[in-house]
């Protein structure tokens, strides 16, 4: 197990270095003048140009610049936003809980519905249920989620008036920020009205963001289950007189979930990327919306920092998935 983890780390560290290189190169790959791009000033005088070059540290040799960038990044200094002059790290940390809360709800939504649906489809193979689950999940898998989100708003918010159109909580509530997650913060204050408001704001974004992971999980669970149900040990378990529920729920599921856990981990990336669209549509103040705005404003330090942090999170999640994979799979644990 430890050897396995060390091996995984051995792959992850070069990947992380690669990402810092990529992010570092980003600003230098932009056509035109990085000084103009970073300062947001156009057609400046030569003296001002040289001044800024020095200010951004761009006058030093590239390896020095890179070492400096990584050194600062590891310390948590990702530079300052050109637009707001705030530290990028602070802006990121302010917004991350919103994205985290949304992504967590979305993955729970996907797991709670997707995995049972996949199991059911596999168990009732070639039945109406199977075809139904598979058709719906194929449609979900192919759905442009920005459009799907609009349809959800149009139906549930505009037509039925059940849920709010955008934002995280109604204006009249202003819970004190503890974790940054509205559901938790409102509960900590004991304000159930505010909690309900936060929850109702979460429902549509959760569905929109969770749809693709849900569809993927349902498909994967079904195929993993079908493969496992054909294994010898399932037949042997039946031959020992175990009930179908026990055979499917204990013997088959345990094995089928091993690949499914990997898929859940991979979906975290999709969720963070999908959050870009979902957050833009629902005006959800998370990192996705923040980064899109930064690109439109050419706020490059924010773009760099956002990419670096998102990639780091994805890498960390992959590591956690590897650990989980090792825990559920005895062939790796031992």
């Amino acid at each position: 197990m430890i050897a396995f983890l060390l091996r995984r780390l051995g792959v992850l560290i070069p990947t992380f270095i690669g990402i810092t290189l990529l992010v570092f190169a980003l600003i230098r790959l932009i056509p035109g003048d990085p000084v103009e791009a970073m300062s947001g000033e156009r057609g400046m005088e030569a003296s001002r140009h040289a001044e800024l070059l020095k200010e951004f540290g761009l006058d030093r040799p590239l390896p020095v610049q890179y070492a400096d960038y990584v050194y600062k990044a590891v310390k948590g200094d990702l530079g300052r936003s050109i637009v707001t002059q705030e530290p990028v790290m602070r802006e990121f940390l302010d917004r991350f809980p919103a994205t985290f809360e949304l992504a967590l709800c979305a993955i729970i939504f996907a797991v709670v519905i997707g995995i049972p649906a996949g199991i059911l489809a596999a168990f009732k193979r070639n039945s109406v249920i199977d075809y139904g689950v598979m058709s719906v999940s194929l449609a979900g898998y192919s759905m442009p989620i920005f459009w799907w989100a609009l349809l959800l708003i149009l139906f549930f918010s505009v037509q039925l008036g059940w849920t709010p159109v955008s934002g995280r909580i109604a204006i009249e509530y202003d819970p004190q920020v503890v974790t940054g997650m509205m559901l938790v913060d409102t509960l900590l204050e004991g304000d159930f009205e505010a909690f309900r408001s936060a929850l109702s704001h979460l429902i549509l974004p959760t569905i929109a963001l969770g749809t693709i992971p849900l569809a993927t999980l349902a498909r994967m669970t079904r195929s993993a289950m079908l493969e496992v149900l054909g294994e010898d040990y399932v037949r042997a378990a039946r031959a020992r007189g175990l009930s179908p529920l026990r055979v499917v729920g204990r013997h088959a599921l345990r094995n089928a979930l091993i690949p499914v856990i990997t898929v859940i981990g991979l979906q975290v990336g999709t969720l963070l990327a999908g959050a870009i669209l979902t957050e833009t549509i629902f005006s959800w103040p998370g990192i996705g919306k923040w980064m899109v705005e930064a690109i439109h404003r050419r706020d490059y330090p924010v773009v760099q920092g956002g990419i670096l942090m998102t990639a780091t999170i994805v890498i960390l999640v992959n590591l956690i998935v590897d650990v989980c994979y090792g825990i559920v799979n005895p062939r790796i644990r031992h």
Binding site: D232, A236, R238, R240, G241, P330
Partner: peptide
Amino acid sequence: RRKLLGRDIAMIFQDPVTSLNPCFT
């Protein structure tokens, strides 16, 4: 019939390695 299986009638298979569930001791 299931009650009989494994209790009164038991079976062993050709490939013992794949007939044991890899997740269980």
